[in-house]
Design a protein around this nucleic acid. Structure first.
Length: 552
DNA sequence: AATATTGTAA
DNA sequence: TGTCCTACAATATT
């Protein structure tokens, strides 16, 4: 019972994908809705079947039968029977419980399974959120009232117990406010429309799209569906201004209808854009700006960059379960592992377009990722070996050998707009000096930054050295080449964001280059491996070359 | 009242 | 594993 398929499905819930197999791409696409990529070296990629992944697939309308069918279709060997049983059982756990509106009790939790129901209501964490036990609703095996204010906490707790509830309690419409898209000289792209529509049908949830694919537009389209007052939460003030600018340009909203609620301004308007920061600041331990949440009868809450949502916002979001919520992000991966909270409090993933698909449609540029390996010079090698663990990463990632390689790469791409990105200021200063390029870091004034960005945009200068400011400033100009010399300890989302900088389509349809310079045989290499995982999931393969092979 | 500076938190 | 960057609030300054 073997066929030459590209997958090997194992009973430890890993799924191996043979990358060079002719059906590999097809299989990757088929398993993407429910499997999570774990490692991605050259030949065989490892995916894992996790409960969260399977439940997300359920929420997106896939059933166990489809998942099983996909595995059987592409598997090379017989798929372990136990795994299939387990998979079906895990998927069946989703929706065994459901939340509904109730005319008398406000909100009720019902179950289709007596044992599950009894288990859940006896859980210590959950008991306090429940009201009185009611007569079984027709067709149910247990019904209990729920305090409406506990809707979010309950969902969070049930997910942790492994019995995620399906939320059918619906949403308040909020205060109506007319909002429509003004498609004037531009049009909503197919995938943007699909994303906004699938969000709307689901009621709340997350849309995953690559950087530069127009997430703001999806937000605007969602608002045009809701036609209600909207609270938009963003990571920083620059982003807040950008949202405002885009909304004025793309919708019937005028400047006066859009307020900014941040450190500098405290405007509350029918559409209000607030920073996460301002909501999470506390005085004497108490949150100071919670009034914003109650200031209006919001019909929609938009969470920009949901992968960066700070922990306290989860607590507030738990109280906002009656409002429609849309989360926007380029990656659902959180380095703090709170994906489950995003799932239970904002909602399941409603739409997801692989970067490569958007690339194929020409909305983002193709990119070529290259990992350049350097060897530490003898002296540094010794210093590295004897250094304390906490100094090793810095030593390995800021070796002078990298500066030399960067120089060669820069020369090779002379004339193309190039960014050199790193995390240690000493290293960046050194690079700036050797490459004869300006360095932009935190202490660079806004005026200076703008001057340099503008010169870069105009093509007057073609090389900038940037620190972590690159992670935050949205107005960083697009480039064709990026050279990463060091990065945070293993942040996948940082890597994704940096690559995202290059993906605006080039006028001549050229491929972007993303180099990452790594010291071999050091912790630098380990972290680089972790950082690359997310991009590998999106189908970006790193070519590995030796520094010696870069022509001078 | 608007703006600049400094310290703190995450 | 720990550096760097940002936003906010408070205070000082025009």
């Amino acid at each position: 019972m073997t066929n030459p398929g590209p997958l090997i499905v194992q009973s430890d819930k890993t799924v191996l994908l043979e990358v060079d197999h002719p059906q590999a791409e097809e299989a990757r696409r088929a398993i993407a809705p429910f499997a999570e990529l774990e490692r991605s070296p050259e030949h065989v990629h490892t995916y894992r079947l996790t409960p969260l992944g399977l439940w997300n697939a359920r929420a997106a309308g896939h059933d166990a039968e489809q998942v099983v069918d996909t595995l059987l279709t592409y598997s090379r060997y017989a798929v372990p029977h136990g795994l299939l049983v387990d998979l079906a059982e895990t998927m069946a756990r989703y929706g065994r419980l459901r939340l509904d509106k109730h005319p008398v009790h406000g909100l009720v939790l019902t179950s289709t399974d007596r044992a599950v129901f009894e288990e859940v209501i006896r859980s210590k964490r959950i008991a306090g959120m429940l009201g009185e036990r009611l007569d079984d609703a027709p067709g149910s095996e247990g019904t209990v009232a729920v305090h409406p204010s506990e809707r979010g906490n309950l969902k969070q707790a049930l997910l942790k117990l492994g019995w995620p509830a399906e939320d059918h309690a619906g949403y308040v419409d909020g205060e109506a406010h007319p909002i429509a898209l003004v498609e004037d000289g531009w049009a909503l792209r197919d995938y943007q429309k699909q994303a906004a529509d699938s969000f709307w049908h689901g009621g709340s949830g997350v849309v995953v799209l690559p950087c530069g694919a127009g997430k703001t537009i999806v937000g605007a389209a969602a608002m045009a569906h809701a036609r209600a007052t909207t609270l938009i939460l963003v990571t920083n003030t620059v982003s807040a201004r950008q949202w405002k600018h885009e909304l004025v340009k793309r919708t019937t909203l005028t400047e006066d209808e859009i307020g900014e609620y941040s450190g500098a301004r405290k405007e509350i308007r029918p559409v209000t854009i607030a920073t996460y920061q301002v909501l999470t600041t506390r005085r004497k331990g108490a949150y100071t700006h919670l009034e914003l949440l109650d200031a209006r009868d919001w019909g929609l809450v938009v969470y920009d960059e949901v992968h960066l949502l700070p922990a306290p916002i989860f607590r507030m979001t738990a109280d906002l379960q009656a409002r429609r919520r849309i989360g926007l992000t380029a990656t659902l991966i959180r380095e703090d592992g709170r994906e489950g909270d995003v799932f239970s409090l904002i909602g399941p993933k409603r739409f997801d377009a692989p970067w490569k698909d958007i690339e194929a449609q020409g909305w983002i540029a193709p990119a070529d990722c290259v990992e350049v390996r350097v060897t530490l010079p003898e002296g540094e090698r010794l210093a590295y070996a004897t250094a304390d663990a906490d100094e090793r990463y810095r030593l390995a990632s800021s070796t002078f050998a990298k500066t030399r390689v960067a120089e060669r790469l820069v020369r090779q791409h002379a004339g193309e707009p190039t960014l050199v990105i790193g995390q240690y200021l000493d290293q960046l200063d050194e690079l700036g000096e050797h490459l004869g390029a300006p360095v932009i870091k935190g202490e660079t004034t806004v005026r200076e930054r703008e001057k340099l960005f503008e010169a870069f945009r105009q093509g007057e200068i073609d090389l900038l050295v940037v620190s972590k400011v690159a992670n935050f400033s949205i107005d960083l100009p697009e480039a064709a080449v990026a050279i990463q010399v060091s990065g945070s300890f293993g942040s996948r989302q940082e890597e994704a964001q940096r690559l995202g900088r290059l993906l605006r389509p080039k006028r001549d349809g050229r491929t972007a280059r993303f180099y990452t310079i790594v010291s071999r045989d050091t912790v630098d290499a380990d972290f680089a491996q972790n950082r690359q995982r997310f991009l590998a999931e999106q189908g970006y393969a790193y070519r590995i070359v030796d520094a010696g092979d870069i022509p001078d």
